[in-house]
Design a protein around this nucleic acid. Structure first.
Ligand SMILES: [Mn+2]
Ligand SMILES: [Mn+2]
Ligand SMILES: [Zn+2]
Ligand SMILES: [Zn+2]
Lengths: 141, 141
DNA sequence: GTCGGTAATGGTAATCATTCTCATTTGCGT
DNA sequence: ACGCAAATGAGAATGATTACCATTACCGAC
């Protein structure tokens, strides 16, 4: 399903700002971007989109299920394309690198922990904060 | 170790505001409190402490290892007493109730996931967002 | 116990991310 | 091409948190 179709499916009208934002996430760029990141990247590529619009669109895409919002350590939200395959994250505290992983055992133990206590799970977030080993860690974003 | 000793050990001088904040967390009250929660509770009990001081002290206690800071969904930080026993959290999206749990398997699989990829783990956060079953969920905070 | 210096406090201004307001522009069906 | 509801964007407003800085409270030395 292409971007335009994605928008229609979500009941969102196809506008230039929305397509531009969706393109950013679709590219081979970094998968995890903050609103500020998106705004700056669009400006840099000559596509002028208002900051308010960026925030609005990101939230709409999240509600439509096109993007996933993360609250890594710190104040700002980070978004990534929702490609249907759930995964968790390791965040390097030195350089900000983000690595994805999936562990079926962790997933099932989580479900069990919640079920045992009478909870109906919506979702969960698991962030591992770590240092990546020297060679591949350029230190500091 | 009592509160006064805690402060000394952390290299923090024993002041009235600090003791009051530490007392709040020591009581049988709710374990998980935001800065605003702490501020309001102190006001309510006649102990006037400035909001700026509350924020400062909470951060100092976190750095000293006396408190643990959480970033549950939403914008504000939540703190709890660090009693040495690590645990994760289930958060009810309806009423805000927070339940703690510990699963040794999850812990070890996390360590392994990070180690396998060459990361040296600092810490991690695992939050399960759910609905607690009707009877014990009073809906809405 | 008093004194003095330093660290802590607290009122208020400032900052940062995010949301709101509202006049202007755009997408889209007719 | 026309018309109108929905979307945009510049800037104001908000909410949480931090920075400033003049005043006050610890604490160790007399
Ligand atoms: Mn990811
Ligand atoms: Mn807890
Ligand atoms: Zn790194
Ligand atoms: Zn509940």
């Amino acid at each position: 399903m292409d971007h335009l179709t994605h928008l229609k499916t979500a009941g969102l009208k196809s506008t230039l700002p929305r397509l531009k934002v969706l393109n950013l996430f679709g590219n081979g760029n970094e998968r995890h971007l903050s609103a500020e990141d998106v705004y700056k990247k669009l400006l840099a590529s000559g596509d002028d989109v208002g900051l308010a619009t960026v925030y609005r669109v990101l939230t709409q895409f999240e509600q439509a299920g096109l993007l996933i919002r993360h609250h890594f350590e710190g104040d700002k939200s980070v978004f990534e394309l929702n490609e249907g395959k759930h995964h968790d994250h390791i965040v390097c505290l030195q350089c900000g690198r983000i690595e994805e992983f999936y562990d079926a055992t962790i997933e099932s133990r989580q479900k069990k922990a919640a079920a045992d206590r009478g909870y109906s799970v919506h979702d969960h977030s698991l962030y591992i904060y770590a240092d990546c080993i020297k060679p591949k860690c350029p230190n500091k974003p």
